[in-house]
Every structure is written in C-alpha cells, then in structure tokens.
C-alpha cells in the first residue's frame, strides 16, 4: 500500500465526544472555510505554524539567537514575535529547551499515523470506538484521508469523518464507502449569512449532505451554536426541517460556542475575529435542543 503524506496538527487519544466510544482523533491541518468563531484556528492554514506558550518560556534567549529571519527578540523578560517575519521554519522550536516554542502542523506519513491509531485498539474494541478524522478539514487532503480510511477498514476499525462537507463531490464519492460515520456541520441555512461568517456559501455543503442521504450513509448533523449567528430558535428549526426527509439522519448534535479559539489565536499572533461573545447558557441550549427533539431527532447537546 502507498504511504501517502499529509499534514496534521494533533492526534488526541481518549477523545470521547467525536463519535461513538473511546476514539483517537486525527486533526488534519488546512481548511477551506474561515469561520469567525473557529475554535481550532491552528487548523486553518495548510502550512506549519509557530505557536508560542509564554507560560512555559524560561527566557533563555536561545530562540532569538537561532532565528534566521530575525523574527524574535526579548523585551521585558518576554519573547516578542514579529509574526509577519516568521516563516514557520521551526529552528527556534528545535532549540527551545522548555517546549514554549511549538510548531503546529507536522508532515506525517500514513504509516506514522496508523502506528498511533493502533495503540488504542484495545479501547476501541472495548467501547465500540474508533478513529475520528477532523480538522481543519479532512476532505481537503483527499488522498491522505482515503489511504487512512482504507487502512482502518482493512483492520475493521470504525472510522468517523468530521467534516464541513465543503469539498468536491468526487472526493466524497471516493471516501464514503470506507467511512463508518459522517459528522456533518450545518452552520446556517441561509447562504448569505453562511458566507458572511464562514467565508463560503452553503450550497455545496447542503448538496453533499443530500448526496450522502441518497446513498444512505450514516450521518450525524452537528450545529455549532454561535450566539448572534445561529442561536435563534427559528434558525435551528429551519436546519431541522432541511434534513427532515433524509432517512439517514436521526441525530443532531448541538455544540455550544466556546472561547477556546481565542487564546489559541493569541499564541499564533492572530487577531481573534469574534471577541466578546458569551458562551450560550445551558438554558438556551436546552430550548434549542427541545425544538429538535420535538421534531423527532435524537439530540446530543454539550453544556447541558
């Protein structure tokens, strides 16, 4: 079998909220969407990027000395990064003794990823768990994803693809028979609003979800609940209706907005696009969940 290379930014074991059972989640790096609230901003770019954790820094200054682009300096016992000069070459990361400099995004082979995946097989077997590919956008690295899915299928490991569904139909066609479960985001039913907050229209997404429905592929719809964007009961109601006739969809997950993306953006020297939003309250989520439950869906809601 080929040993394709892809770029990922994390492998998380004991992942318990991204599909059934105990799972290992592989985070693909790079995403065609640019959601303003993105809670994994390190997953947007397809390139490796520098991340700095001041809490780990011991101000030894080694990074400053080795940086070939003069992007680093120490001021007031703090490392200051000129992000526009940084190319993500990783020299400072190699040199940093304390792990304060981190390179987010690493080129890995399918062999390497499989080696990590099989480590937790005993937990998958016990809990009916498996692997989840998310991101970023896993469908944006179709060859790599297809190979990993094929290898998992060969070992009878349950696979979940957590996707925005913003991808060419051909990609979906290629991978769908190797995928045990899709987690598909529907962020907003209105295309203009969708474009305003994510950078792309929703037509391709909804078409792809319909296509998976025609093919009777198991799909769980996920709605990230973003205050001021899609947390109106009417919006949730519309999404519920949109997929009502799809016989493969029985479950909708509500993922309440969290501020996790904020600090990650800071560590990467990025401006956070949605400052000052409050996380939705449990009461609000319950109200939205009830709408979907009334429509006959099984609903999993975070934060309740």
């Amino acid at each position: 079998m080929a040993n394709t290379t892809g770029i990922i930014f994390d492998i998380k074991r004991y992942s318990i909220n991204d599909g059934p059972g105990i799972r290992t989640t592989i985070f693909f790096k790079g995403c065609p969407l640019h959601c303003l609230w993105c809670h994994n901003p390190e997953g947007i770019s397809f390139k490796a990027q520098l991340m700095h954790r001041p809490s780990r820094c011991i101000q030894c200054g080694r990074c400053v000395l080795v940086c070939p682009h003069k992007a680093l300096e120490i001021q007031d016992k703090k490392v200051i990064i000129s992000w526009e000069k940084c190319t993500g070459c990783g020299r400072c990361v190699t040199e940093c003794p304390s792990g304060a400099m981190e390179l987010v995004g690493k080129s890995v082979t399918a062999d390497e990823v499989m080696k990590e995946i099989i480590k937790d097989i005993v937990f998958f077997d016990q809990s009916d768990g498996g692997v989840t590919f998310c991101g970023g956008e896993p469908l944006a690295q179709p060859k790599f994803l297809f190979e990993l899915l094929s290898r998992c299928r060969a070992m009878d490991i349950h696979t979940t693809v957590d996707t925005s569904c913003y991808a060419p139909r051909a990609v979906l066609e290629q991978i769908m028979d190797k995928t045990s479960l899709f987690l598909c985001d529907i962020k907003h039913p209105d295309s203009a609003k969708h474009k305003e907050f994510t950078g792309v229209e929703n037509a391709i997404i909804l078409d792809n979800i319909r296509f998976l429905a025609e093919k009777r592929k198991p799909v769980i719809v996920r709605i990230p609940v973003i205050p001021g964007f899609n947390d109106h009961p009417e919006t949730i109601n519309t999404i519920g209706k949109l997929v009502a006739d799809m016989k493969n969809i029985h479950q909708i997950d509500l993922l309440p907005y969290n501020t996790g993306g904020q600090s990650k953006s800071q560590r990467m020297g990025k401006q956070y696009q949605m400052p000052g939003i409050q996380e939705p309250s449990g009461l609000n989520i319950k109200e939205l969940a009830d709408i979907l439950i009334t429509m006959g869906y099984k609903v999993h809601a975070g934060g309740l």
Binding site: I16, L255, N258, T259, G260, Q262, S263, H300, G302
Partner: peptide, 26 residues
Amino acid sequence: NPDQYRNLIVRVAGYSDYFNDLGPDL
C-alpha cells in the same frame, strides 16, 4: 503551576481538552 498538571483533562463544552491548553479566561 501548569508544568505540574500537563496531564489534566477537563471537559470544556461539547468536548474535552487539556486544562493547560485553554486560555486563562476559559
């Protein structure tokens, strides 16, 4: 003392994460 607790996992909202890896606000 983040270094002492690098293995501490917390459930955030719909997902779980390492406590260290969350911003101070969260």
